[in-house]
């Protein structure tokens, strides 16, 4: 029995425990790849003294909150509507889901053209409507963060597909009983479907938060964190430190992302009682 666990344990140790150990130990060190010097809490002190860190932390939480606030309600609504199987529901399901499978990098490139101040679709559309059409949405400090968020918050396919799967698992008898009692479709949706989606909604919120607190590719391609760090995320902030050869500091930032992630997981699990029965 113990021997049969060895391959799995070895893989777990190689790909999880060792990297985690390196992350934790080097987060308390000055490390540029070879020379490692223990510096205690110095990296964390420096982090707390750096306004760019707080800007990156604020942006990361903003992106995560924006994604949850927009994607989850829209995704749940889309899933509930399509679960009723209206005419053309399969086509709508595919159309809504496709953006989710496009890579973040490709998405970012498309949106960098969409937002282009000189030739982009957005400014041209605004100009056609007689509105000012020369704003550089991604590189104006007033709009950059919102423009970046706008590229991913409407990608609701992932939430929609999970909600549809969860609804399909709800026994028909529940709805039949409600219909016998005279409940309208709206009341069935609000009082039966929605409460039974609590688990899946909690799960998608968890997944969204965990994906978004590590957000890197979209921001890196669209703005590289500028202007004036207005769009920088924690992952990008850590990457910059890594590029500077400050690997210990980068890992201190990485460990902070880990802690933020754990706090969010615990909070969401408690709030939605994820994993508990219906």
């Amino acid at each position: 029995m113990a021997v049969s666990l060895l391959p799995g344990a070895a893989l777990f140790a190689t790909f999880f425990l060792v990297p985690l150990g390196v992350l934790v130990v080097t987060a308390f060190s000055r490390w540029g790849g070879l020379d490692l010097a223990w510096t205690g809490l110095e990296n964390y002190r420096r982090m707390l003294d750096d306004p760019v860190f707080f800007s990156a932390l604020g942006n990361t939480l903003f992106y995560a909150a924006a994604a949850v606030a927009v994607q989850v309600p829209l995704g749940v609504a889309a899933g509930m509507v399509l679960a009723l199987r209206p005419r053309g529901w399969k086509a709508f399901r595919a159309i809504i889901f496709v953006p989710f499978v496009i890579s973040g990098a490709a998405y970012a490139l498309v949106f960098s053209m969409f937002y282009n101040a000189r030739a982009g679709l957005l400014n041209n559309a605004l100009a056609a409507l007689g509105l000012p059409g020369d704003r550089d949405w991604l590189f104006d400090t007033a709009t950059a963060r919102w423009a970046v968020a706008g590229t991913f918050v409407f990608v609701v396919g992932f939430v929609m597909i999970l909600v549809m799967a969860e609804i399909a698992a709800i026994p028909d008898e529940v709805y039949e009983a409600a219909q016998i009692d005279g409940a309208s479709a709206w009341r069935q949706a609000v009082h039966i479907t929605l409460p039974l989606l609590r688990n899946v909604i909690g799960t998608v919120i968890l997944i969204r938060l965990l994906v978004d607190i590590g957000m890197f590719d979209v921001v890196f391609i669209l703005t590289a964190g500028g202007p004036d760090d207005a769009t920088a995320t924690l992952a990008l902030y850590a990457y910059r430190a890594y590029l500077n050869g400050e690997w210990g500091y980068a890992n201190a930032v990485g460990s902070t992302i880990l802690v933020v992630g754990v706090v969010l997981i615990v909070a969401v699990r408690r709030l939605f009682r994820v994993g508990e029965g219906r």
Binding site: A224, G226, P227, D228
Partner: peptide, 19 residues
Amino acid sequence: AGFGVAWRNLWPAYVDGSM
């Protein structure tokens, strides 16, 4: 060596009057 990265980050904010 970090001039280019710093410039790209700060120049748009300077031009839009943020500093």
